[in-house]
Amino acid sequence: MFSGKRPTDEMFGGDFTLRSSIRSALPEQVLDVADDLILHNGLRIGFPVAECLTKVLEVGLGCS
């Protein structure tokens, strides 16, 4: 939901999965894996997008 990608996206295959993509991006490159709509809306209202996305994605990884 936060990356805008599905686990079945053609960019994923073999050992490269949605989960591994997100895990390798945290925390420094979190904005690189985020859906553009989240970034656009968050930046518009001045919300700390990177910090919040990192926390949410860490919870998601911990639960998967």
Rank of each mutant, 00 (worst) to 15 (best):
M1I: 00
M1N: 05
M1A: 12
F2P: 01
S3H: 03
G4C: 07
G4F: 02
K5V: 07
R6W: 06
R6E: 10
T8N: 05
T8M: 13
T8V: 12
D9H: 07
D9M: 14
D9W: 10
E10K: 10
E10F: 12
M11W: 08
F12C: 02
F12K: 12
G14C: 07
D15A: 14
D15K: 13
D15F: 00
D15C: 07
T17V: 05
T17D: 08
S20W: 04
S20F: 06
S20T: 15
S20Y: 05
S20D: 08
S21G: 01
S21E: 10
I22R: 12
R23N: 10
S24Q: 15
S24L: 04
A25D: 09
L26I: 06
L26A: 09
P27E: 04
P27W: 00
E28N: 11
E28P: 02
E28Y: 00
Q29D: 15
V30S: 06
V30F: 10
V30T: 12
L31G: 02
L31F: 05
D32V: 10
D32R: 15
D32G: 01
A34D: 03
A34Y: 11
A34T: 08
A34N: 02
A34S: 13
D35M: 11
D35C: 10
D35A: 13
D35T: 00
D36F: 05
L37A: 08
I38V: 15
N41E: 13
L43V: 07
L43G: 11
L43C: 05
R44I: 00
R44S: 11
I45T: 01
G46Q: 09
G46C: 02
F47N: 02
F47R: 04
P48E: 04
P48H: 03
V49F: 02
A50N: 09
E51N: 01
E51H: 08
C52Y: 11
C52E: 13
C52F: 15
L53K: 12
T54K: 05
K55M: 09
K55R: 12
V56R: 14
L57I: 04
L57R: 01
L57G: 07
L57M: 14
V59M: 11
V59E: 14
V59G: 02
L61I: 03
L61C: 06
L61E: 02
G62M: 13
